[in-house]
Write a protein that binds this DNA or RNA. Structure first.
Length: 603
DNA sequence: AAACCGGGCGCC
DNA sequence: AAAGGGCGCCCGGTTT
């Protein structure tokens, strides 16, 4: 089981970990490490338990079995040995976190600099339409027969283990499974390198994604400092406030009880229907009810707002805090059906959605002066937090790609696009009493009509985003006028849609393709070209930021970066990162691109 | 008890 | 014929 001597190898080692959970901030640690390597066509594989088996379950019948777990010195020897080698992993970011955290009892080592290959990432590059998981991939490519996995599944089902608790599986069941994983990984690596040697894929694409993975890993390791104590204090106030409101409600504060009250007891006409035909009970509907003088509508709306704010942020964030007082999200770099990731090339995040920290304007209905969740994120002492984002990224890239003469001209002149649109389409001027409204409509129009939205969707966004109601015919007229003003977009949307129909994908930028799945509408092809291109841009910007300014990136949100910088270097670093983004953006998209920089929370 | 779904809502 | 897109988390309610 444990080789008497760990060989020094000049071939890469595949490494896999079995763990007690998915996220180290939720207490997950490493239980098993397995490795595999290939020499002269022969694959060698081993697995070592450090915290494996049903030892914590006294009712188990295995209590007289000897404990298979290895002592500390072998853990130390193993990770030291790994640190001397080139490593291959399947979803390296996950195993890196686990190996850095270590076992339940012993700290680990950060092996990020040893990783030379991630078979999950390369799998997505080589076969973008196939699942990314190790088992389905191995099955697809004829590596292993899945026996070990079936044994594990049977054991979990039979013993009704809690989700993710692979650590409770006995060693004799786990060993073949863990070994097989490492074996599959190295064999997958061998297949992938052969395909790439055949010229199937530009190795620079792989290098770039590997760099990106390492950057994401480092961002996740850093996390963001969060003031849990203050947040909890505010949460307590909000809960008290909610209780006083709850006492005035004539029904239990649940959606079902509220629906029954409004639509059966009071017998209201539905304001709008949900997808499944039930009367809607969202903020908009409750607003309208309030205006119409419906009893309890205002209170229920306020109650709901408080509940959402508490569950999502004021209590939700403190629930996720790490031992070091920092919040960590987990990025997905590749898509896997049903478990996350994106089709567009953007990153998605899991565990805690730090890509959706609410802005102040969305926090209506809370008592006056309540601090926003954003305010509890803070830099560590002696540091500053900055957020940098691309100015009007989508609009500029879309204008360039659609070759919209008029918009490109306005961008070159640095004109206020939304105001110009309002002047053109409403014949309005700044002194007009309805100027703000006209500009709002124009702004929403610019954002959505560049991608070909229709009157129904436009009305809906206008209502939810700007609180402006429009008749359907009014919306249709507006859209028609907008398309006349910026005629290139519809042409481009049709062109890209046709391209995607014919080819099954739309090229975004730099050789990247956004593939369309069967049944997907290709009407969105142009949108996806823009979104995909910007996602690629954001990756390069982040990689370059990390390269030139190591240790400052703490969050990525699509086309923005958050930096935590030592205060004496803050301004210089920010200026440098602005330049990197603006220069790269202008070069990539051949349209003037700028970067806005603000202290965290001041925008 | 866990898995799943719809509704709702946050972000870009 | 007409159609902006991309995500994840939380809850309550239902199914397994």
């Amino acid at each position: 089981m444990y080789p008497t001597q760990l060989p020094t190898l000049n071939t890469p080692i595949a490494v896999d970990t079995e763990t007690s959970g998915l996220y180290t901030d939720d207490g997950a640690t490493t239980c098993v490490v397995s490795v595999a390597w290939t020499i002269d066509g022969t694959t060698h594989a081993h697995a070592w338990p450090f915290n494996q088996g049903p030892r914590n379950q006294p009712q188990q019948t295995l209590q007289f079995e000897p404990d298979p777990n290895l002592p500390a010195h072998q853990w130390v020897a193993l990770i030291h040995w790994l640190s001397q080698h080139n490593l291959v992993m399947h979803n390296a970011k996950f195993d890196l976190h686990m190996l850095t955290t270590g076992t339940e009892h012993w700290p680990g080592l950060d092996l990020v600099d040893c990783v030379i290959w991630d078979t999950m990432i390369v799998n997505k590059e080589l076969d973008p339409l196939h699942p990314t998981g190790l088992k389905p991939t191995a099955k697809r490519l004829g590596l292993g027969d899945g026996t070990e996995q079936q044994q594990i599944r049977k054991y979990i089902e039979h013993h009704k283990l809690p989700a993710g608790r692979y650590d409770l599986i006995p060693w004799d069941v786990m060993e073949p499974y863990a070994t097989a994983d490492a074996e599959m990984t190295i064999e997958l690596y061998n297949l992938q390198t052969a395909r790439i040697a055949d010229g199937e894929l530009d190795p620079r694409m792989i290098e770039r994604e590997l760099e990106m993975m390492k950057t994401l890993y480092k961002i996740e390791q850093r996390g963001m400092a969060f003031d849990t104590d203050q947040c909890i204090r505010v949460a307590q106030n909000l809960m008290q406030h909610r209780t006083t409101i709850e006492n005035t409600l004539p029904f239990e504060p649940t959606p079902t009880a509220a629906r029954t009250y409004f639509y059966e007891t009071l017998n209201l006409e539905p304001y709008q229907l949900t997808d499944t035909g039930k009367p809607k009970l969202d903020e908009n509907a409750l607003r309208k009810m309030t205006q119409d003088g419906v009893p309890a509508a205002a209170q229920y709306l306020q109650h709901r707002k408080l509940t959402v704010a508490l569950d999502m942020w004021y209590l939700g964030y403190p629930n996720k805090i790490g031992n070091d007082g920092r919040l960590r999200t987990s990025y997905r770099q590749t898509k896997e059906h049903d478990t996350g990731g994106t089709v567009s090339g953007r990153f998605s995040v899991q565990r805690i959605n730090l890509q959706a920290i609410p802005h102040k304007s969305k926090l209506t209905g809370l008592p006056e002066g309540t601090p926003t969740p954003r305010q509890f994120f803070h830099p560590k002492p002696g540091y500053e937090l900055w957020e940098l984002d691309l100015q009007q990224a989508e609009l500029r890239v879309a204008a360039r790609m659609a070759n919209c003469t008029r918009m490109l001209q306005l961008i070159e002149q640095d004109a206020d696009l939304h105001s110009v649109t309002a002047r053109e389409l409403f014949g309005a001027t700044e002194s007009d009493p309805d100027w703000f409204k006209y500009r709002q409509i124009s702004k929403r129009g610019n954002f959505s009509l560049i991608f070909g939205v229709g009157p129904d969707t436009f009305r809906q966004t206008l209502e939810t985003q700007a609180g402006i109601e429009m008749q359907r015919s009014e919306a249709a007229d507006f859209i028609q006028a907008w398309r006349k003003l910026y005629p290139e977009y519809m042409t481009k949307i049709d062109l890209d849609s046709t391209y995607a129909d014919r080819n099954g994908y739309i090229p975004t930028i730099g050789g990247r393709r956004r593939w369309f799945y069967p049944g997907e509408y290709t009407h969105k092809a142009f949108n996806q070209r823009v979104q995909g291109a910007l996602a690629e841009f954001a990756k390069s910007w982040a990689i370059e930021t990390e390269k030139q300014h190591p240790n400052v990136l703490v969050l990525l949100v699509h086309d923005s970066e958050v930096l935590e910088i030592e205060q004496h270097q803050a301004r210089a670093t920010v200026d440098s990162v602005i330049n990197i983004g603006a220069e790269m953006g202008t070069r990539w998209f051949k349209v003037p691109m700028g970067v806005d920089a603000n202290r965290w929370g001041e925008h």
